[in-house]
């Protein structure tokens, strides 16, 4: 047989095999390296099921006309007022109520209630809405397709849709046009070991002390002790969502 056969030569086979192996290595290697790097990150700031973060809001202490917590939340997360209240993002909002029978007036703040059984997580088609093992309900902005089903499902109207392109964002809260977002319970602070949310910090600084943040699973935390000694309520308790945010004197 002459070497005119169209059978590939050994060298050619080796060359093709070598090329495929090299291309494969080039494709996989960065992934492996990144994966290893992200594993390293997890070790320092991973969420733990030993905690469940929550908040207690005292309606008696929430002061009339005060917006310190709202302003602090906005500046912490880079939520800008574009003068369009219908579409501007709102993560925390004051609500003032009057009892229809007795005329008793209450004031409180509403935000994502960080439910144990969050309806937003149930309805999200792509798993973008999720609950961390420490109870914080978040949106993965890389997975959110902007269908807004979670906004339809949230019984607390806690979520906002980003209606426009954003600039000058806060490093604490990356956001994106076309995605849904809500209170993160200042998860960036929790992960950095700072046990105080922006709203609580502002409320305390104003001297009202209406917001207490802490670990619901730690029996010695301030929030746990207060919840044990006082009668607190959940908003829309009938839905049995076991919220992480509770209210006093409501």
């Amino acid at each position: 047989m002459s070497n005119k056969s169209d059978q590939p030569s050994v060298q050619r086979r080796q060359f093709i095999g070598g090329t495929i192996a090299a291309a494969g290595a080039l494709t996989l290697a960065p992934g492996v390296i990144l994966h290893a790097a992200s594993d390293g990150d997890k070790a320092t700031s991973g969420a733990s099921s030993k905690h469940r973060w929550g908040m207690l809001i005292d309606a008696n202490k929430c002061a009339d006309g005060c917006s310190a917590c709202v302003d602090a939340c906005n500046s912490e997360h880079g939520l800008t007022d574009l003068g369009r209240p219908e579409t501007d993002a709102v993560w925390i909002r004051p609500v003032k109520l009057r009892d229809k029978q007795t005329g008793h007036v209450d004031r409180l703040v509403m935000m994502c209630q960080h439910c144990e059984h969050p309806p937003c997580v149930d309805v999200c088609p792509t798993n973008a809405s999720f609950k961390r093992i420490d109870g914080v309900v978040l949106v993965d902005r890389h997975r959110c397709i902007g269908c807004r089903y979670c906004m339809m499902a949230c019984p607390y109207k806690a979520r906002s849709f980003v209606h426009e392109a954003l600039s000058e964002q806060s490093v604490a809260a990356p956001r994106g046009k076309g995605c849904v977002e809500s209170c993160t319970l200042c998860v960036h602070r929790i992960d950095a070991g700072e046990m105080q949310t922006a709203c609580q910090e502002a409320c305390t600084k104003e001297g009202h002390g209406a917001i207490v943040f802490g670990d619901l699973k730690d029996p010695n935390s301030e929030i746990s002790r207060m919840l044990k000694s006082h009668n607190s309520v959940q908003i829309r308790a009938d839905l049995e969502l076991n919220t992480g945010v509770r209210y006093l004197n409501l």
Partner: peptide, 11 residues
């Protein structure tokens, strides 16, 4: 049972 007299989000 309550009416809303002030809201920051159209409640």
């Amino acid at each position: 049972g309550k009416e809303i007299i002030e809201t920051g989000f159209f409640d």
